[in-house]
Design a protein around this nucleic acid. Sequence first.
RNA 1: GGGCGCGUAGCUCAGGGGUAGAGCAUCUGCCUUUUAAGCAGAGGGUCGGUGGUUCGAAACCACCCGCGCUCACCA
Length: 503
Amino acid sequence: MDNNIQQDVNVLIKRRYEELEELKAKGFEPFAYSFDVDSDSEDIKNNFQEEPKRNVKIAGRIMALRRMGKASFTHLQDQKGRIQVYLRKDDIGEAYDAFKLLDIGDIIGVEGFVFKTKTGEISVHVTSMTLLAKSLRPMPIAKEAVDENGNKIIYDQFADKELRYRQRYVDLIVNPEIKDVFLKRSRIITTIRSFLDAGGYLEVETPILQPLYGGAAARPFITHHNTLDTDLYLRIADELYLKRLIVGGFNGVYEISKDFRNEGMDRTHNPEFTMMEIYVSYKDYNWMMSFVESMIHKVCTEVFGTLEFEFEGQKIIFNTPWQRVSMIDAIKEKTGVDVLTAGANELKAVAKKFGADVEGLESKGKLIDEIFSAAVQPDLIQPTFVIDYPLELSPLAKKHRTKEGVVERFEGYVAGREICNAFSELNDPIDQKSRFEGQVKAREEGDDEAHQIDEDFIRALEYGMPPTAGLGVGIDRLVMLLTNQSSIRDVLFFPQMKPEIKK
RNA sequence: GGGCGCGUAGCUCAGGGGUAGAGCAUCUGCCUUUUAAGCAGAGGGUCGGUGGUUCGAAACCACCCGCGCUCACCA
């Protein structure tokens, strides 16, 4: 990194370092220790009064600079937005010498009174100024204007996706509108948490480093513990540990945390992602469907104040109850084929007809899943629960109480995307063991995402797990959906990138 | 991993075998209610990297690196 920094030293940076020295030489501290703030840009604009003059102390980053000899206008940006600030040499004296050495990007604190300029902009007339932090790198600043219709025009906006992701701190400064997505993300998670807490469910933490990984079908990250001299896996799901806690006697436990999957990356996949999983004893998947409906309903109304959303040009309405359709019926409706009774060859033919690539796939369950993904899923626009999945796709879900060959499982789909996955949890240790054995067989046949056998989990079930409903919600994808972002990178502050190369 | 596209000044982008360009940003001078402030002048580049073709390469070719879109994979 040293090399990178050296490399980046150009005239602009060099000049800022020189100014830094000049400020020090003149007795100005370029990196202050604190500053008392009693207002912000939003407050000042919302609570403007002509008389009596209001005195405020604010701090922020210089984002625009218009100097006119012995007086200057600048825009300060704080967490809430921007406010214009007016400085005159007559008012601040020698601090104006320091101000002349400041740049766009520097952070200052000012005290002054609020007034309206000739052109009507609410501004702060500065009576004292303090430099809080000198910025040593040029900010990729964009100029802003407002057109006749009051719309904001941004010129030459910082747009390089790579730089924006790698240096998100800069992105957040110069493209403040993206903050809204992250604010919404935070409020979505807070609202889910308060919904779960209000329901009396216990938030818990389970291991990220696991000797065996399970609870989903995915390739893991492997790491090594030196003292134990053993390889460990970063979890791909929380499921098996949370269910152990249900065995332990908690009635409802949930965890909101990162899972890790060592798979491809694209606009819906990041190697680490946020999952919410909850397990509730004495409930089944029917109960869980209503639970999801009310949780999402609460998120929509509390965070967004609406049930209507736009996602990639489609209108989504989160009315309850959501539509419900069995996977088998949904496929039958689209293809005319009953996948439960159809043979593997027929399934292959159907899959191909709908454009799925099923080369080398023999498993009936996987074929059915391919057909579903290709023929049904893209059309599930309004919130829909797809229920009752083929048994072999769901080694941790309980067999359906009446239907043969399927399990009590549902996935919630919105805008053609899966946003949650839930089952009546399998609590029969004998059945669980044989399902694991089936997975071992699949693994031997080359399915490197098949589950591993977890003997301790079987042992836990042998002690007895009450009937339990379990749910997993992909938080990133939910946030994408509700904030109309089509790339997961735009709902993550720091999406995974290849490391910058050292030269 | 495959296909397509992109990489030129701090930022946004033109240029497309013959001296490296513009706007904004920066610097100097003038300017005490400006707002994409203005006026006058100036500085700033390993044209992603390495090889090759050529009298001459930012441009053409090959390979590499990075990013984006997309397909596959990822239920």
